[in-house]
């Protein structure tokens, strides 16, 4: 897990946004297809961006699992809710944005560490999968940066 400082705020925010926003197929079809292939592919996305899908127990992997409710609880505790009604709260982009906000507010380290433990422990595995599967420079870079931010245990 990262020993994050304020330096991580812009990176986490940028990564959060990058992973949340599907590129416009009209202006950048290659990026749009890559986004679908990695995260949404009906043929089986290799990098599902939701924490609930990365549970250790394969039988517990699902959308909107306990991680979704846990994330909602964190957001709520700080007086926030996601703006995206149809997106699970444990989407990696939302988690990274919220994490950036925690760091930016200079939240007590114990609280930040608790959030990391509950909601970011899976990110190294996600980053590794993204690094392996990405085909565009942007996604390769994102995976690399994410991997360096969250190097794992």
């Amino acid at each position: 897990m990262t020993t994050a400082t304020l330096d991580a705020v812009p990176l986490c925010a940028a990564l959060g946004r990058l992973l949340l926003e599907a590129p416009d197929a009209a202006t950048d079809p290659e990026a749009a297809r890559e986004y679908v292939r990695l995260f949404l592919n009906p043929q089986g996305a290799p990098c599902p961006p939701w924490q609930s899908v990365w549970e250790e127990d394969p039988g517990a992997r699902r959308l909107l699992g306990p991680a979704h409710h846990g994330a909602l609880g964190w957001y709520r505790e700080f007086g926030f809710a996601p703006n995206l009604d149809s997106e699970p709260a444990d989407h990696i982009g939302l988690l990274l944005l919220f994490y950036a906000m925690l760091l930016d507010r200079e939240t007590p380290p114990a609280q930040v560490a608790a959030f990391e433990k509950q909601h970011l422990a899976w990110v190294p595995r996600f980053a590794a999968a993204l690094q392996q599967q990405a085909r565009t420079d942007v996604m390769r870079e994102a995976a690399e940066v994410l991997g360096e931010l969250f190097p794992g245990a």
Binding site: V9, A13, R76, N83, L94, F98, A100
Partner: peptide
């Protein structure tokens, strides 16, 4: 995505007060 005056502008875009 980087270099914006407010690096947390994306947070404001994807979260609302609740």
């Amino acid at each position: 995505l980087l270099g914006a005056a407010n690096p947390l502008s994306a947070f404001d875009q994807f979260f609302r007060a609740a």
